[in-house]
């Protein structure tokens, strides 16, 4: 795993996965090895795109990092801290998350302001102070107005009445209200129409690149992967099949990725190598 791209060289690891494994329904005929020994190290500030066929374990990977699912084996460290046994809500102090379903990331019956108030306490104690103060509201107005959606005048509207695109844009602001150590994005534009998807993707790039966040983004869109992934990981059957970084990543085109998918499809389960065919390019 020690092939850091030149940009990443010298930066400490923000995410370190060691032999991470997770099987669903173990010991039954339905047993699924969703993650089968994942070793990945992500340096601080790297934007990683995760690709892979349906069921290859991408969402499970994000879920074990967030702590939604526990591990059968292996270790997870975030920002140098071993969090393998931390519950999800404790890891949330380090992690910002956006789900594929716009409904999952917000409390629909609550107002925009209240949703943001909840997000502003991510990883902090929640006490008996009023959730929405006038100072907070002012700050919120300023931040929401950067979206250019006119939502700053509707802070008391129930967030569930907004469109999926508006909600995902807001969820992105919520997850990054305080800079997260790691931002996890699981097909967060997949449920949106093309125009909203492009808008949310552009906003994602602004935030992740503008603030140099460490991010893992799952997508099925090759152009999106090529356009944004500083590093591209392709998963297959619970393993990392390819790990493109540095020069190899820069030379990569949509055609190459499609070829990788074809290749993966033809590879039977047992032929997936336990460690990735790392491609870093010339040193």
């Amino acid at each position: 795993m020690s092939h850091p791209s030149e940009a990443a060289q010298g930066r400490p690891a923000m995410v370190r996965l060691g032999a991470v494994a997770r099987t669903f329904h173990p010991g039954t005929p339905d047993a699924v090895r969703a993650l089968d020994g994942i070793d990945v190290e992500i340096p601080e500030g790297e934007w990683v795109v995760v690709l892979g066929t349906n069921g290859s374990g991408k969402s499970t990977l994000l879920n074990v990092i967030a702590g939604t699912f526990g591990l059968d084996g292996g270790t997870i460290a975030l920002g140098g801290q071993d969090v393998t046994h931390w519950p999800e809500h404790r890891r949330a102090g380090i992690i910002g998350r956006i789900f594929q379903n716009p409904f999952s990331g917000t409390a629909p019956a609550m107002s925009i302001a209240e949703n943001f108030a909840l997000a502003s306490r991510r990883g902090r104690t929640r006490g008996f102070r009023p959730a929405v103060t006038s100072a907070f509201r002012a700050e919120l107005r300023a931040r929401v107005s950067t979206l250019g959606m006119g939502l700053e005048d509707r802070l008391d509207t129930a967030i569930g009445t907004l469109s999926g695109g508006q909600r995902q844009a807001l969820t992105l602001l919520m997850a990054t209200w305080h800079d997260p150590g790691v931002l996890l994005l699981d097909e967060h534009t997949a449920a949106l129409d093309p125009r909203s998807a492009a808008q949310v993707q552009a906003l994602t790039a602004d935030i992740v690149q503008g603030r140099r966040l460490t991010a893992l983004m799952v997508t099925h869109s090759m152009p999106q992967a090529i356009a944004y992934g500083e590093r591209i990981i392709m998963m297959h059957r619970g393993r990392v099949l390819h790990d493109f970084r540095g020069e190899a990543r820069r030379r990569l085109g949509v055609g190459d990725l499609l070829a990788c998918f074809e290749d993966a499809r033809r590879t039977p389960a047992d032929d997936v190598p336990p460690s990735p065919r790392s491609a870093v390019g010339t040193d």
Binding site: T68, E88, R90, F99, T106, P108, L118
Partner: peptide, 11 residues
């Protein structure tokens, strides 16, 4: 209402 969201927000 949204346990998934609120867990992800650290509660």
């Amino acid at each position: 209402e949204s346990p998934q969201m609120i867990r992800a927000l650290g509660a």
